[in-house]
Amino acid sequence: MTVTRLVPGLLSPPRWAVRAAHAVALVTLPSGVWRLLLAAGFTAGYTGTGYEAMGFTGWGAVYVVGLGMAGELLALLTLGLVRPWGEVLPRWIPLVGGRRPDPRMVTVAAGLGAGVLTLGLAQFAFWWAFPHPDMTPGGNTLAGFLYLPLVAWGPLLAAVTLDYRRRRRRRRHRRVAGAGPVRPCRRTAHSACSRGQQHRAQAGFSPGGGGGSGTGDYSLAPDRP
């Protein structure tokens, strides 16, 4: 006989937050691909003299590639705010694998990062307001469009961080409001107990009697017989 148990879990992130987190991982791609072209030996909008002056060969190429990869990895970390691996770090990560990061530290780090990125990358919104004599006219226009998405990185990260903080606070408040263990009941074809628990889970009520908003704070998971 199968036993159904209400398992407490995190509030599910709203759809807009999930989309915003994925958008962060995309805004760094255009400029990252452009850097790869520069490291591969393409002038990619620079004049011949300008390309040589920028030093995109040798160690300069390594720096450009590393900068692009670091930016993309940092952007991908935003997904941890809306994905399970952000709650429990993957075990393959050295030293910290399998641990739960402190939500307060995550919120502070992400918030500071959002502020720094917003201030530091806002300059690309004014790319065409400044002369770039080391680039061709077409290259100057193209580079401006490739870097323009970076302006949205900071605001998107800030929005996802605020939602992460909101969900963590609501989870903590529900833990305080709800008390008492969850009683398992046997699930049968006409089990009123199971149906009652399922309705309460869908409505967002906590097992301890606290009300909810139906945001998916609990999920149904079958236990062993």
Rank of each mutant, 00 (worst) to 15 (best):
T57C: 05
Y46S: 09
S31H: 13
G80L: 11
A17V: 04
P84I: 01
P90E: 07
G41Y: 04
V106E: 01
I93N: 05
S31Y: 11
G98N: 02
P30C: 05
V33I: 14
L37C: 13
G41E: 06
P103G: 02
V106F: 01
S31E: 08
G71A: 13
M105F: 14
A109M: 11
R99H: 12
A61M: 03
L36I: 04
R104G: 12
G71Y: 06
G58S: 11
V64G: 10
G97Y: 11
G45T: 07
V64E: 15
G60H: 08
R19S: 08
T107W: 12
M105T: 11
E72H: 15
R100Q: 12
G32S: 13
M105W: 08
V64Q: 15
S31G: 01
R91G: 10
V82D: 04
P103T: 05
G58N: 07
R91Q: 11
V27T: 12
G50N: 01
G48P: 02
R15S: 12
D102Q: 00
L112P: 05
P103W: 03
G97E: 08
P30S: 10
A21V: 06
G113E: 09
D102W: 07
M69L: 15
R15P: 02
G55S: 01
V96E: 02
G48K: 10
W16D: 08
A44C: 13
Y46E: 06
V108L: 14
V64T: 15
Y46I: 06
S31T: 13
A17S: 14
L38Q: 14
G32R: 05
G97R: 07
L73F: 15
W16T: 09
D102A: 01
V88P: 03
L77E: 10
L77T: 15
P84K: 00
G45C: 06
V88L: 07
L29E: 08
W85C: 12
I93R: 02
G80W: 05
L81P: 00
E87Y: 05
G41D: 01
V27Y: 00
T57R: 14
R83Y: 01
E72Y: 12
V65F: 11
G68M: 06
R104M: 03
L26K: 01
T47G: 09
R35D: 08
G80P: 08
G98Q: 09
T78Y: 05
L67F: 10
A53V: 09
P30D: 11
G68H: 09
M69P: 00
T57G: 10
G98E: 05
P84E: 04
T78P: 02
L26V: 10
G86N: 08
V62Y: 15
G86V: 02
V18Y: 04
V96Q: 01
A44Q: 14
F42E: 13
P101S: 02
V108Q: 00
L26R: 03
M105L: 15
L38R: 11
V82Q: 04
L29N: 00
R104Y: 01
V27L: 08
W16L: 11
V27P: 00
T78A: 15
A25E: 12
T49Q: 09
A75D: 07
L26C: 06
L38C: 08
Y46H: 13
L67D: 12
L77C: 14
G32D: 10
A109P: 01
P94C: 10
R104E: 09
G80H: 05
V106W: 10
F56C: 12
G32T: 15
L81I: 09
P101Q: 02
L38S: 08
G80T: 01
G66S: 12
A44T: 04
